[in-house]
Amino acid sequence: MDLQLQTHPEDARDYARIGDAIRYLVAHATEQPQLADLAAAVHLSQSRLQRLFTCWAGVSPKRFIQQLTCEAAKARLAAGVPVLPLAYELGLSGGSRLHDLFVTLEAMTPGEYQRGGAGLEIGWSVEASRFGPLLLAQTARGICALQFVVDEAGAETWLHEQWPQARLRRQNGQGRALAERLFAPLSLRDGPPLALRVQGSNFQIQVWRALLGVPYGGLLSYGQLAASIGRPQAARAVGSAVGANPVAWLIPCHRVIRAEGALGQYRWGEARKAELVGWESAQLAAQPQDAAWMA
């Protein structure tokens, strides 16, 4: 097994085991658990756990938990992130560099939003990914939704609620190549630019656009994000906009944490946020400094 996308049933079970391990690490971070403690908690041998975890994350469980501690997070926050001095000034057709992908974000027009997607055709599918099943929905002009899902029926219901007048077409496998690209190791990513086509208020779009400027592996607080868009007193409103993000990972709301270093809530679960933050940090740490991709 390598760090490529895993899709068969055994790999799905492996992801569940890793999720259990990370939840344990987060819950016991202050105790700095040993490998034996973690192995016992997830009912695996130490050798099996070490091998499985390292294949999935690229680092050992011990190294991974070091990336997740509050002290480490606070240090990264205090170091400052060169966040977005220009990102929110780029305009609707502008773009920022995210990971090693180019991502452009375009807002649907107020008229399109009010019409509930009338005249819009949205193709969607649920694809396997490193972090669990993904709902991927696309229009002719770009990705309009990327969500971690628990059940597919709920995912389709959510799509109908967001675009009640749009024509939804399930196209199994249409997002498989993109899902593989998203979570490949840094050194293996390649491909054409990605376009996002999202609906939201002007303020939400401003916040989501700002998030595109946060470097891969970087962290910032809600207050820092609010200040970066010229609204230092609006941290609470910024938090609501972050929580409403319709495009997981590509609009990296997982990189926004509490000022004291705690990860905080996440639309798709705090455990998954820990997985994303820890894995991203581990991937970055594995790169030579001069080769590390930054936003």
Rank of each mutant, 00 (worst) to 15 (best):
D2W: 04
T7M: 05
D11S: 08
I18G: 00
L25F: 06
A27V: 05
E31R: 14
Q32P: 01
L38T: 00
A40W: 00
V42C: 04
S47I: 10
L52Y: 01
F53W: 03
K62E: 12
Q67V: 03
T69A: 01
A75T: 07
V81Y: 00
P82G: 10
V83L: 15
Y88G: 00
E89S: 11
L90Y: 03
S96P: 00
H99C: 09
H99Q: 09
L101R: 10
V103N: 02
A107V: 07
T109I: 11
G117H: 12
A118H: 13
G119R: 09
Q138H: 14
A140I: 13
A140F: 12
G142D: 10
I143W: 13
C144H: 05
A145G: 05
L146I: 15
A153Y: 06
L159H: 09
Q165C: 13
L168F: 11
R170V: 09
N172Q: 14
R176E: 08
A179Q: 07
E180Q: 15
R181T: 10
P192V: 11
F203H: 13
I205G: 05
I205T: 05
I205D: 00
W208G: 04
P215C: 04
S221Y: 02
Q233I: 04
R236T: 14
V238E: 04
A244S: 14
A248Y: 06
I251D: 03
C253I: 00
V256G: 02
E260A: 08
E260Y: 04
A262P: 01
A262N: 10
L263F: 13
L263A: 05
E270M: 14
W279N: 01
W279A: 09
L284W: 06
A286K: 04
A286P: 03
Q287V: 04
P288W: 11
D290E: 10
A291V: 13
A292D: 02
